[in-house]
């Protein structure tokens, strides 16, 4: 169980910069207005970020798009864990069949 000093320096540098990204949002948010366009923007942020993360993954191929559509429909009716389980199974089966 050894740690190379250069590797540790890289890990530490990554960690410090990553923490900065995490705390920066908290610090600037206190200075943001409670209404108006900035508020509208902040309220829209959660779905905007989620969709930006998901969209390229779902659009990466027909199997991902089909499995994504299945999840979308299921999520309206089933609890999260069941939705995810069926989504994963759908992706696996489609890859087995067409992959």
């Amino acid at each position: 169980m050894t740690i190379d000093p250069v590797n540790f320096a890289a890990i530490l540098a990554m960690g410090v910069l990553t923490y900065m990204t995490r705390i920066l949002g908290f610090l600037i948010a206190d200075r943001l207005p409670k209404s108006g366009p900035v508020r509208v923007a902040l309220d829209a942020l959660p779905p905007a970020v989620l969709v930006a993360v998901i969209a390229p993954i779902v659009m990466s191929g027909p199997i991902e798009a089909a499995a994504g559509l299945v999840v979308l429909v299921l999520a309206l009716r089933l609890p999260l864990i069941a939705t995810v389980a069926v989504g994963v199974a759908t992706a696996a089966l489609l890859r087995l069949a067409f992959g």
Partner: peptide, 16 residues
């Protein structure tokens, strides 16, 4: 092969 990489987008779709 087991579709495990799809768990992450599936969670986010449901949360979105």
């Amino acid at each position: 092969t087991f579709g495990l990489d799809f768990a992450f987008p599936a969670i986010f779709i449901a949360l979105a």
